[in-house]
């Protein structure tokens, strides 16, 4: 087990009319947004409002390209909000020291990149950056369903599924208050999915940490989350207790998405 972390309480994440845009053509993003320069923006995400309570597990579902991953990257300032605000523990993300925000709010990418060195080097990367006591890499590997002996292997030889598990272990090693998960089980078999889900939910129970979990697997969303947000075309189309959202979708568009995505082979974000 991880030693108790000094800030084990989960983070609160709040969106206030938050949006994210990309440039549709040439120009300077900030100047175009502020109207100082001509040009147009294409909005990936518009007018997002909502609150993720400490310790909550929120599933974020929606078709490919609807803005789910963008929503996550606003929470750790890998992307700056183009409109509105995002607050972590009631401090606007731009007011945080970015490195400290990203230490507290960990992110696991869908196709994780392994850092040079061994698996152990990867797991110890964040604790070394932040001067935290080094975690037990072997124990973390076992938690995510890998062999402890893998710690000394070079990280660049791993399969896609192994990378996803190591990336999760690497994120847990930074002792976050929140986890941003982007399709973290997409390269795993059924057995692997169960192990990784269990590891994440156990982490949440032990530390009281917050989870924002992007997934295309609606069954997984129902299995793991308290609350579900449905993102359609860059807007939050539904938001509420998971069972309520699935039982009574608030609109025809949401109902159609939930019905369509549940048929096999549809609505999947296969990379």
């Amino acid at each position: 087990m991880q030693p108790p972390s000094p800030d084990s309480r989960g983070a609160a994440i709040r969106f206030d009319h938050a949006g994210a845009a990309v440039l549709a053509g040439e120009g300077n993003h900030d100047k175009v947004r502020n109207g100082e320069e001509g040009g147009s923006l294409r909005w990936l995400l518009r007018d997002v409002n909502g609150r993720v309570e400490p310790g909550q597990c929120v599933a974020i579902i929606g078709p490919s390209g609807s803005g789910k991953s963008t929503l996550l990257s606003l929470c750790n300032l890998l992307r700056t909000p183009s409109a509105g605000h995002v607050f972590v523990d009631e401090v606007e993300v731009r007011a945080w020291r970015p490195s400290e925000l990203r230490r507290r709010v960990a992110m696991v990418f869908q196709q994780p990149v392994m850092l040079p060195g061994t698996v152990r080097d990867n797991i110890e990367a964040a604790p070394r950056l932040h001067g935290l006591p080094l975690p037990d890499a072997r124990e973390l590997l076992e938690r995510v369903g890998l062999f402890a002996s893998m710690a000394e292997q070079p990280a660049d030889g791993l399969s896609g599924g192994q990378r996803q598990r190591v990336a999760l272990a690497r994120a847990l090693a930074q002792r976050p208050a929140a986890l941003l998960l982007d399709e973290v089980t997409s390269a795993l078999d059924a057995d692997g999915v169960r192990t990784v889900e269990a590891a994440i939910l156990a982490w949440r129970r032990e530390t009281g940490g917050t989870v924002m979990w992007v997934t295309h697997d609606l069954v997984q969303a129902r299995r793991v989350s308290h609350v579900t947000w449905v993102v359609l075309e860059g807007r939050i189309a539904a938001q509420g207790e998971t069972e309520k959202v699935f039982a009574s979708p608030p609109s025809e568009a949401v109902r159609a998405f939930l019905a369509g995505a549940q048929r096999p082979g549809q609505g999947e974000d296969t990379p």
Binding site: N76, L78, P98, S99, E100, L101, R102, R103, A106, M107, F109, P112, V113, L115, A125, A126, L129, H130, R170, Q174
Partner: peptide, 13 residues
């Protein structure tokens, strides 16, 4: 860039 983004996400300055 992917490796750099990974470092940043881990909280690297």
């Amino acid at each position: 860039r992917d490796e750099i983004r990974t470092w940043l996400a881990l909280g690297a300055r």
